[in-house]
Simulated assay, not measured.
Amino acid sequence: MSVTRLIDRGVIRIGGEEARDFLQNLVTNDMDAVTLEQAGYGALLTPQGKIICDFLIVALSDRDGGGFLLDTPLLQTSDLMKRLKLYKLRAKVTLEDLTERSAVLASADGAPLPAEVGVVYTDPRLSALGQRAIVDAAGADDLVDAVPEAWHARRVGLGVPAGGRDFPYGDTFPHEALLDQLGGVSFRKGCYIGQEVVSRMQHRGTARTRIVPVVFEGGIATETGAPATGVGKPLGTIGSTADDKALALLRLDRLADALAAGETPLGGGLAFRLAEKPGFIRFPYPGEPDFGAAA
Rank of each mutant, 00 (worst) to 15 (best):
L143K: 11
D141P: 00
M31W: 05
T222P: 10
Y192R: 07
T99F: 06
G139E: 03
T99S: 15
P286R: 14
S199G: 09
D8F: 02
D243I: 01
G118Y: 10
F173I: 08
G218E: 14
I12A: 03
R165W: 02
D97A: 08
G118S: 12
G15I: 00
R13W: 08
P148G: 12
L126I: 00
K92M: 08
L178A: 13
G279Q: 12
V93F: 02
T206E: 03
I57H: 00
C53E: 07
R101Y: 01
F216V: 05
K233W: 08
G190M: 08
K245E: 09
T46S: 15
T209K: 15
H175R: 01
L259F: 07
D145Y: 01
G279V: 04
R9M: 03
R155C: 09
T172N: 04
L143E: 04
V198L: 07
A260E: 14
P47V: 10
T46L: 07
Q131K: 12
A162K: 05
F173S: 00
V215S: 10
Q38A: 08
K277P: 07
L23T: 05
T229D: 13
T229N: 13
V135Q: 11
M81V: 15
H152T: 15
V212A: 11
S102G: 06
G130S: 12
Y285Q: 03
G236M: 08
R83W: 04
V3T: 14
T241Q: 12
V3F: 09
A271H: 08
V156F: 02
R132D: 10
G279A: 15
T264L: 01
I14H: 03
G287E: 12
T4L: 10
L126P: 03
E96K: 15
L179F: 04
